[in-house]
Design a protein around this nucleic acid. Sequence first.
DNA 1: ATCCTGACGCTAT
DNA 2: AATAGCGCCAGGA
Length: 107
Amino acid sequence: MDPEDYVERVLSVVERVPRGRVTTYGAIAEHVADPRRRGPRSVGRVMSQQGGGVPWWRVVRADGSLPPSHDDEARAAYLEEGTALRPSGRVDMPRAFWDPDDGTPGP
DNA sequence: ATCCTGACGCTAT
DNA sequence: AATAGCGCCAGGA
């Protein structure tokens, strides 16, 4: 599989995340399930370098922590689209988490 | 090949 | 809640 395809798959998953919901690096990694590039860190790298064209704020860490280096913009986006937040400022994962596999049923 | 780095994840303090 | 340690994998020097 070409590296380019991997990037496109990751980005396409992010684009499917519904408004007001979020998913995680780990969930994307599992959904893509590339035999060569495994792990959430690879997804994180893709987002850092080419996540500018997709709703990157809908991708958070597993515990609901906001995406680093852009947490202010992310928070503004959450308020704007009504994403469930906790008093702590993190995303309310039980309510806002969106699993890529639930939204994209396979063959 | 080796070393360092990092938009991760999990467990233990 | 915040920090630290370890495992993990890919990239760049």
